[in-house]
């Protein structure tokens, strides 16, 4: 990783087409003040936020969305050299171990299952980020 410190605010982008879940995730992640969260209702808007200068440290993508699915957003992100190694988590209700393995094979770095515990969501995202960062450093 670059010179980032863990004390820095972790920039998170979250994409979900469900407004209620967006609000809950926003509130759940807001419980951790060290997270700088941007929420987008679609992949296209998320890519717009990034294009407008928000450089996320980690992306949380809902899988099943109209127009652009989570996988499509991931593909777009991976196409951009600066995000080739961006930690990306899928948030999905379909998360059997076999599915998780498949998502990982398809380029995701981790999966958060719905429904999630809102009180530990932020901790969960941080844990994923630290695990993925450690993994990237060892590569």
């Amino acid at each position: 990783m670059d010179a980032r410190r863990f004390s820095d605010r972790l920039k998170v982008i979250y994409v979900d087409d469900e407004p209620d879940i967006r609000i809950i995730v926003e509130m759940a992640l807001a419980l951790d003040p060290s997270l700088d969260v941007r929420i987008a209702p679609s992949g296209r808007e998320a890519l717009g936020i990034i294009a407008n200068g928000f450089v996320p440290d980690i992306a949380l993508l809902d899988l099943m969305m109209p127009e652009m699915s989570g996988k499509d957003v991931l593909a777009h992100l991976r196409d951009m050299p600066q995000f080739a190694k961006l930690p990306v988590l899928f948030i999905t209700a379909n998360a059997r171990q076999a599915d998780v393995d498949r998502y990982i094979n398809e380029g995701a770095d981790g999966v958060i299952t719905k429904p999630f515990d809102p009180l530990s969501l932020a901790r969960n995202v941080r844990d994923h980020f630290e695990r993925i960062s450690a993994l990237r450093e060892s590569e």
Binding site: V25, A28, A93, K114, P115, P118
Partner: peptide
């Protein structure tokens, strides 16, 4: 699952925070 996720999430937040 989607509305249930919202419900459980909301209730969890209510209960916790």
């Amino acid at each position: 699952r989607t509305p249930l996720t919202s419900i459980v999430g909301s209730l969890g937040l209510l209960r916790g925070s």
